[in-house]
């Protein structure tokens, strides 16, 4: 079988898991193997129906009250046992925080290599994956020789595709054989975020600020514009390193990946590590004093000039239109 680890929230599978399932289904076709999904956590079996629409013929629901909440090692143990019992040839998960973590544990438990952040797979002999390096600024083709190939799938690399007609997956209950050490790490609590602001990853508009903003104070106009457009503020690493803004707002390789309708990049040079975080934006508008800044070539629209004057004028124009 091809085995896909599916994450869900309150019984609804995550979009990234549906991407993995779609890649899994392609592999199942090429390799002539059935497509199975494995789901853990509270409400696992409730997810099954939704996975039939993506071609899963069986869903392994891990049901063990000790690990109803997230427990990375134990969830991985269960996944490894499902893979072994079903003689899986490929096991994959989305390259999310949890997907990457669970697969790393599976790899360590099974003593097998793991190809992280894959964007494509050629399931022939050899079995070759294309995977991201440097957060996606570089790609690597690599071959995996293990009997069970382990991989994670980079978000947005494979658009989810439903099957027609949907299949009715068979639900199999999994009672994992856990070792004592597997239970050492379990989610013991949750804390809500402390502000009610628009979250970066959901924002339709992100107003980004870089070193060119000049100071922590300089962000007032960016906040104002974000407020007018119902968006959020994002920043470059130069800004968080200077302590002007919190790291939660950082966009890029070691920050958030955003995909807004519009990203307005103010005083940001466009380093590759920043751009991998915002390449999902539908449109990019750059405001920069330097017409030769790398961001200018990676944007859809650009204004050459001091961001302070440009933002003030844009804000005034929006207000003028709003009041007329």
């Amino acid at each position: 079988m091809i085995l896909v680890f599916v994450e869900h929230e309150a019984g609804v599978p995550l979009a990234t898991s549906l991407e993995s399932l779609t890649l899994g289904r392609r592999l199942s076709k090429v390799m002539g193997l059935p497509l199975h999904a494995s789901v853990a956590g509270d409400g696992a079996r409730g997810v099954a129906g939704a996975l039939g629409a993506y071609g899963a013929s069986a869903v392994h629901a891990v049901e063990d009250p000790r690990i109803a909440d997230y427990a990375p090692t134990a969830w991985a143990r269960a996944l490894a046992q499902v893979a072994e019992a079903g003689d899986a040839r490929v096991a994959l998960a989305a390259a999310t925080d949890r997907g990457s973590e669970v697969m790393a544990h599976v790899a360590a438990i099974a003593g097998l290599p793991l190809a992280a952040s894959c964007v494509a797979v050629a399931a022939g002999d050899p079995f070759v994956v294309t995977r991201q390096r440097f957060g996606g600024s570089l790609l690597e083709d690599a071959r995996i020789d293990a009997g069970l190939k382990l991989l994670t799938v980079a978000p947005y690399a494979v658009p989810p595709e439903e099957v027609e007609p949907a299949v009715e997956p068979e639900i199999r209950t999994v009672a994992p054989d856990l070792m004592e050490g597997d239970l050492r790490v379990r989610l013991t609590g949750r804390e809500a975020a402390d502000d009610g602001r628009v979250s970066l990853s959901d924002a339709r508009v992100v107003v980004g600020g870089g070193r060119g903003v000049g100071s922590a104070d300089g962000f007032r106009s960016l906040e104002e514009l974000a407020g007018l457009l119902g968006g959020a503020v994002g920043v470059s690493r130069a800004v968080t390193s200077l302590g002007w803004r919190p790291h939660a707002e950082q966009v890029g390789q070691t920050g958030a990946r955003i995909a807004p309708d519009l990203y307005i990049a103010c005083g940001i040079s466009g380093a590759i590590q920043h751009m991998v975080g915002c390449k999902g934006a539908k449109r990019i508008l750059a405001i920069n004093t330097d017409a030769e800044a790398p961001i200018m070539a990676k944007a859809d629209y650009a204004v050459v000039g001091d961001l302070r004057g440009v933002l003030a004028a844009v804000i005034e124009e929006i207000r003028r239109l709003g009041s007329s």
Partner: peptide
Amino acid sequence: GPERLRLHLPPEQERGVQIL
């Protein structure tokens, strides 16, 4: 493993900038 076969750059996303 995995065994590296080759490195390559992702296709450039040419957005064709319009100067406003």
